[in-house]
Structures are given as C-alpha cells and as structure tokens.
Simulated assay, not measured.
Amino acid sequence: MRRGVIASIAAVAAAALLASGCTVETAESPKGDSGTAVSSVVQTDSGGLKRYISPAPLADKIETRGPDGETPVWYSDLKLTPEEVEKVKKGKYRAAIVWHTFSPFMNALAKGVKETYEALGVEVVATTDATMDQPKLANDVQSVLALKPDVIVTIALDPVADVATFKPAVDQGVKLVFASVKPKDFKAGKEYVSLVTYDLKGLGDVTATALGEDLGGKGKIGQIFFDANFFVVNEREKAFEETLKSKYPGIEVVERAPMADPAKVEDIAAAMIARHPDIKAIFAPWDTAAEGVVAALRNAGREDIGVYTIDLGNTNALDMAKGGLVKEMTSTLAVEFGNTLAIAGAYGLLGKQAPPMAVVPAFPVTKDVLKQGWESTFGVTLPSDIAAAGK
C-alpha cells in the first residue's frame, strides 16, 4: 500500500533527492561539480552577499506548504542588512554542516553554505556524511557538538528518531537550520531557526506542464511513484498528479506503479511498457530513478517514449544533450539553497526572527536551455562532455 514502507527506505530517497566513524572533515569540503564558476547567474543583494538568480520569475503566491502547514517565503526574502553582516563578522562564530549523504546536489548546497559563511566571517569547523545511516547521524551530531559550533546546518533522516538526535544541540543552545526535513514536532523559532527547501508544488507542476505540452494535451502515460512516507517526494508527486489532471484531462495515466526499492525501477519500467505498449511518456520521481527508466526503454528498443523527471544529474543531462529519451528535468537553485540555509543560520546568530520556512524556485530544464539550467542549478559551466554532446 502507498506510504507503507519503513523509514529506512525513505532515507534512500533523501540520498537521491538532496541525492565510518564520524567522518568529520575539518579541512576539506566534499567533492563538487566540475566546471568554472559562472558570474551571469549571480547578483549581490542589499547586504553585499552573493545570491543566485532564478531563471524563472517568482510567483506572487507560493502554493507549497511545510510539513506542519507552514506558509513559506521565497529565498530572496531572507537577507541581511550591511549592519547585520558586519555584526555577524565581528561575532567570530563557528558553524558545522551535518549531512546525511554526499551527492552532487548536496555538494552544491555545501558550496553555498561555505561561500556565504566565508563572506560572513563564520568558520565552518566540520562537514559530516552519515552515509544514510540514522544512528550515524546521531553520532555525527554528538561529535560535532564537541567542536562547539554556534550553528549547525543539517537535515533529518528519520523525523521521529531524530527528535532525540538533535535534542543535545537544542539543549546546548546551538542554532539549527534544516534542509527539507526536520524532526517531528520541532517548532521554528523554538528548537530550530528555519526550514529551507525547494518549491515542492512547483517542481511537480513544472514537470506535469512540460509533459502535457510535449504530448499536445493527450495520450497515455505511465507514472512511477515512491511508495514511502517521505514528505518532499510525496508533495511533488501529488502536485504532478493534480496539475496533470486539472490542466490536461486528455492525458490518461494508464498505470501508477509503486516503487519501494529504487534499485528495482528498471524492472518496474520494463513491466510497465510490456503491459502498456502504447504509452507515450513515463514520469519518474527523481533523477537516478529516471536513469533506470531510460535503461529499460533502451533495452526494449522503445526510443519513442519520453522520460520526465525532477532533479538534474550528469547521466540524464548527457542523454538529453544527445537528443535522447530524457525530455525534461525540473530543477532548482541548488547553490542558492545552501546560501539561504547559511543566511537563515545568521538570523539565529543575530537573534533575528526568521520565517519558519523558505523555498527556492522550480524551473524546467530541456535540451534548449540545458546550459542555462545547469549553470543556475550548480553555479558552474556545463561539463565539457555534456556541452560537446549538444553541438
């Protein structure tokens, strides 16, 4: 039954989305995306901090809501005055990044956090990788607390179990900022400063719109959904389904296939096209899941079925650049996500009330705008192999 999978499976999705011992790295950051920094996608805000520009206009109203019904603001609404920037610089504060995994997306977030804290004079004393293991995340928090950080930028792996994981930090007065997933019952302004995530409804809406327009508003498609209780995935899948139904009633979802184990997605897609050979497209819930769909289609010789997904990654970007099966990937401002996390943490250091939730926007990435989409997401030039494939 949908949503009936244990929390450990949900943790796998976090790796795809956000994508030994403590592994505290005090000198090095995780490996990031290759490429040269791109200045055209950044601007300086009123406080003198570097911020990323959305390639799509920001809507007047944000439809996404938080796990406790929070109404978010756009990332650009979180900002510091020049005076506040100087006050943070004089504080000689220390920060730690406590991640659940390392991936291109999470590395981009770490890049944003570190660049902003460097500009604010905040020393990042640790970066940890829990390797998707909740007990290890708890151990990482304990190890990092020994370094006496003033602020921790982090993510919960298990919202229930991680109430205990982060309680020692709360008890020590450390300012917590969460990326996408927070402990259950933690309240903004009390146990943590703010929650920063992407526009969940926007991600689903943009993907559905791209698929609907490409199919001319009619045809049969398949959908693979994540069969687990994982808020960020569930919300964007829900938005995809609602937009498709309301805007494109001529498109029929002939099968919604549950995926409890992401390693099985290729088999799921192969079975789907065998049962429904007349489908024109398949939606996969995230980037690496889409890779399995592409593999199944190629093995079946079905070059006529388009693949649509959320999140931006090298393998699917290369396929897209070659004019392959991946037709659209919906992305977001990954480095700016990190910038916003860092600025939210600065709010906590200053004792400034932060919005309970902030989001970075969603935007479509297709072959025609792949270069711009990549640069806006990661802040660096498109990898040379992908750029060459698109020529």
Rank of each mutant, 00 (worst) to 15 (best):
A161S: 02
L157Y: 03
L349T: 07
K371S: 13
T81L: 08
I305H: 00
K182G: 06
G204M: 06
E237C: 00
L244Y: 10
S143T: 14
V163L: 03
T381G: 12
V193Q: 15
P55N: 07
L49F: 08
D77S: 15
T340I: 01
D129Y: 04
V85F: 05
A387F: 09
A59W: 01
N339A: 12
P67Y: 00
D185Y: 14
M106E: 14
T309C: 02
T23L: 14
T23M: 11
V293E: 13
K182A: 15
K114R: 15
Y117K: 07
F231K: 01
C22R: 14
Q223K: 12
A10I: 05
K79T: 14
A56T: 12
T101V: 13
E242Q: 15
E241R: 13
A388R: 15
V177T: 09
L145H: 11
D304M: 08
S29I: 02
G217N: 02
V181Y: 09
P383R: 09
P262F: 05
S39G: 10
G301F: 08
N139A: 14
L58Q: 02
V125H: 00
H276R: 09
P67N: 04
D199P: 03
G379M: 06
K352M: 02
A358E: 07
A15G: 14
S376L: 08
E291F: 06
I305N: 06
T26Y: 00
P55V: 03
A56R: 00
G66I: 11
S103V: 00
V41W: 02
E213N: 12
E375T: 06
R256E: 12
T26F: 04
V233N: 05
G202T: 04
A96L: 02
L109A: 15
F166G: 02
P383L: 08
K218S: 12
L333D: 10
G313W: 07
F230N: 03
A317K: 08
K92F: 14
E118K: 15
A108F: 00
F178C: 03
E83P: 04
V253H: 01
K218M: 04
K322W: 01
V196S: 04
V196R: 02
K167Y: 01
V253W: 05
K220W: 01
A354G: 06
K92R: 15
K220V: 01
G324T: 07
P258S: 10
G301W: 01
G324I: 10
L147A: 10
L58I: 00
T154S: 13
K352W: 09
T154R: 04
G250Y: 08
I386H: 10
V232K: 00
